[in-house]
């Protein structure tokens, strides 16, 4: 499972952000993960307690928002969900979409004071 290293890195970045912005107590961390990312939300949830142990985020809640895998059609330029449409543009049937989202691993926000 390679999620742990990546979550530890995210936790470090949040701690750094908190220090720089004088945040004293964090209640919830909100992550955004793309539907096509190599990081699997279920595994992130599993390793979260281990990743936050002995950090400022110990005992915080984790919320994960999954971002859709969207693409722009190279022919008609419309945006569609690649997973739902199985890679084919639903407007003009073109099969070579350009990915515009779905690979993210983002720290969206924290609920804190």
């Amino acid at each position: 499972m390679h999620e742990l290293g990546i979550v530890i890195k995210a936790v470090k970045n949040v701690e750094e952000f908190a220090r720089e912005n004088n945040v004293t107590k964090i209640e919830t961390l909100v992550l955004q993960i793309g539907a096509l990312a190599s990081v699997i939300p279920r595994f992130v949830e599993e390793c979260y307690p281990m990743a936050v142990k002995d950090t400022m985020l110990e005992d915080t809640k984790l919320k994960i928002e999954v971002l859709p895998a969207n693409a722009r059609c190279r022919a008609c330029e419309k945006v569609f969900n690649v997973l739902e449409e199985k890679g084919v543009c639903p407007y003009c049937n073109n099969e070579k979409p350009e990915m515009i989202s779905g690979n993210e691993f983002m720290i969206k926000e924290i609920i804190a004071c």
Binding site: F17, K25, F105, M106, I107, E109, I111, C113
Partner: peptide, 15 residues
């Protein structure tokens, strides 16, 4: 103290 939402919007890989 009151909790509020603080936006970070940072990609872990890009950082």
């Amino acid at each position: 103290s009151k909790y509020k939402i603080i936006e970070i919007k940072e990609s872990v890989f890009e950082d």
